[in-house]
Write a protein that binds this DNA or RNA. Structure first.
Length: 572
DNA sequence: GCCGTTTTCGGCCCGACTGTTTTCAGTCG
């Protein structure tokens, strides 16, 4: 029995309660109990009394205990007898919530997609009170679209859109200011739609311009406070524009940046102070006076909450952290320690990459092409790596303003050995080890491979530790907690791979890593010029994990970094 | 179902929109 199963069980109960049309507060009580477990750092065995956690009381505690002991609970078993399983996916249909579904089930015997469609088509649904012609139309349309597009899209599939949209927003005269909001602003790794907040004194004019943006494929809503359009890229993506008066801009921006849980917490806190937060401002309940703000910082200050950047506004618990975190910023980054060149599968030469990194203002980089095992990437063997070192020396002489580390991204082989001997690795300035093969091995084997790499005094860093590709590949069976412990124990750097397809390690794990004292490097793993720009996304992902500057080794000077690298080799 | 240096009962975040109504419930963000 593990914690994840218990959390899942509580959430499942909540879903069934929703379908039963239960009291919404009871439903959210189960969700809150699940969250309470999720936020708690301890493992299941370490928690001696669940009801001591905030949000878990007598009832949910009993459910948890029963589930741990029996592997099932009477609560859920009873619910399953009352509510057919086939209704659950129907909750995802736009416009159908628990109550309406409960009604469809009780009055028309709808139990799944097929019976729902039938009931719509033979006119039964239309006759039901609370439903009408339009509801039937919408349900049928939603049924047609089910499964066409994943509900949430991987970040990297959507990332091009803001650039495209903002280029044109810049040109609309009546826009006073604008900002992206929603999960994109918080850098969630999957995105459902895009939200923009626009300040204007001429909403009608702006709305008319918005529906004519070149990327627009379809206009869904065209009002004076809200415009919704569908834009076409790899997928159809819905974009909401909220038009507000300039003085409401920052409270609206905060509101639509979310997350929902964050907003709930902020409002709860405001309420204790006799204040009411809405997207239009903060109202004093007693006098009705409404406060608006010149910045989000001012908004937080007014509520006496230390400023929280958008990336960390997730669970709501951040609201009660009573200091502003000193988070890493893009400007702190002094170098990039993972990139490829034409020597293996990169697009640019060593010199080209070096020049581009100098333009970025970096003080150091590591050239880290693939090792010989990775034939598809034209990985380098010992001979070619030595040749490359000579080449790097030449380039280094030409560009003394930047320190170039001779590195390699060495494969950890399926049999658990490394692609190079210690004797050879000794020659390298910076050695990355990573797994690119045999992803389906058991956790035991994967961990053994990691252990070998981390124990080597010459392996400085593990790249993209889990191997996941967001929305496409799960990653191999890594025991992340143990991995982090080993990283601390062996002085091995953990990478945060800034590639938006990866963002690996994940932000929740990064936070744990920092708490345990691990060192993090944010790297682009660039295979071309353009990918060097992913550093900005990497830094945001780090901030999302509350990563502070001192944890990030590429915020250090080249000298600090060099001396740190020596400690692992025992040369310090 | 949870919770309480205002409360052990009566709250639980707030507002807009939609489609259904004839004043509002349900859904959504």
């Amino acid at each position: 029995m593990d914690k994840k199963k218990v959390i899942k069980h509580l959430e499942t109960i909540a879903i069934y309660l929703e379908l039963k049309g239960e009291n919404p507060f009871k439903i959210s009580a189960y969700r809150k109990a699940a969250q309470a477990l999720e936020r708690n750092d301890q493992s299941l065995d370490e928690i001696d009394d669940f009801s001591k956690l905030d949000g878990i009381g007598k009832g949910t505690n009993a459910v948890i205990v029963e589930f741990i002991e029996a592997g099932e609970t009477e609560t859920l078993n009873d619910l399953k007898e009352e509510v057919p399983e086939g209704l659950i996916p129907l909750l995802d249909l736009q416009g159908l919530g628990g109550k309406k579904l409960a009604k469809l089930y009780k009055e028309l015997g709808v139990i799944d997609q097929v019976t729902l469609r039938k009931a719509c088509e033979n006119g039964d649904v239309e006759k039901l009170s609370g439903f009408g012609k339009k509801s039937v139309e919408k349900i049928l349309q939603a049924l047609d679209e089910i499964g066409k597009r994943p509900e949430r899209l991987p970040l990297s599939d959507v990332l091009v859109l803001p650039q495209l949209i903002e280029e044109e927003l810049e040109k609309i005269d009546d826009i006073n200011r604008y900002s992206i909001a929603g999960s994109m602003r918080r850098l969630r790794e999957t995105i459902k739609d895009l939200d923009y907040i626009i300040a204007t004194t001429n909403p009608k004019q702006v709305a008319d311009s918005l529906v004519h943006l070149s990327a627009v494929k379809e206009v869904v809503a065209h009002g004076e406070t809200k415009v919704t359009v569908i834009v076409e890229s790899k997928w159809d993506v819905s974009v909401d524009f909220r038009l507000v008066a300039p003085d409401e801009f920052y409270t609206t921006l905060h509101h639509f940046t979310g997350s929902k849980d964050h907003n709930v917490e902020m409002r709860r806190l405001a309420k204790q102070k006799g204040l009411k937060i809405s997207e239009y401002g903060v109202e004093e309940e007693e006098t009705g006076k409404i406060h608006t703000f010149d910045s989000e910082q001012a908004f937080f200050e007014f509520l006496e909450v230390p400023y929280l950047p958008p990336e960390v506004r997730e669970t709501g618990e951040e609201v009660s952290v009573n200091h502003s975190p000193n988070l890493i910023e893009l400007a702190d980054i002094k170098g990039d320690l993972h990139m490829h060149t034409t020597w293996s599968d990169g697009a640019q030469s060593i010199e080209e990459m070096v020049k581009k990194n100098i333009e970025k203002g970096y003080q150091f980089i590591a050239i880290t092409d693939h090792s010989k095992f990775l034939r598809v990437a034209d990985g380098l063997d010992e001979v070619r790596l030595r040749q490359q070192r000579e080449k790097i020396k030449e380039v280094q002489a030409k560009y003394p303003e930047i320190t170039i580390f001779c590195g390699v991204e060495m494969d950890i082989l399926p049999d658990g050995t490394l692609d190079f001997s210690d004797e050879f690795l000794k020659e390298m300035d910076f050695v990355i080890a990573s797994i690119h093969s045999s992803f389906s091995q058991s956790e035991e084997k994967i961990m053994a491979r990691m252990r070998t790499a981390m124990e080597s005094p010459y392996v400085d860093m593990i790249a993209h530790p889990t191997g996941r590709l967001i929305g496409r590949r799960e990653g191999y069976a890594l025991d992340i907690d143990t991995f982090i412990d080993w990283a601390v124990e062996t002085n091995t750097i953990i990478e945060l791979n800034a590639n938006p397809n990866r963002l690996d390690l994940h932000w929740t794990e990064l936070r744990k890593a920092q708490e345990k004292g691990a060192r993090i490097a944010i790297n682009t793993d660039a295979h071309s010029y353009q990918m060097l720009d992913d550093m900005a996304i990497g830094v945001k992902a780090a901030r999302k994990g509350w990563i502070e500057r001192d944890t990030v080794i590429n915020s250090w000077t080249p000298e600090q970094l060099q001396s740190f690298l020596k400690t692992k080799k025992g040369e310090a």
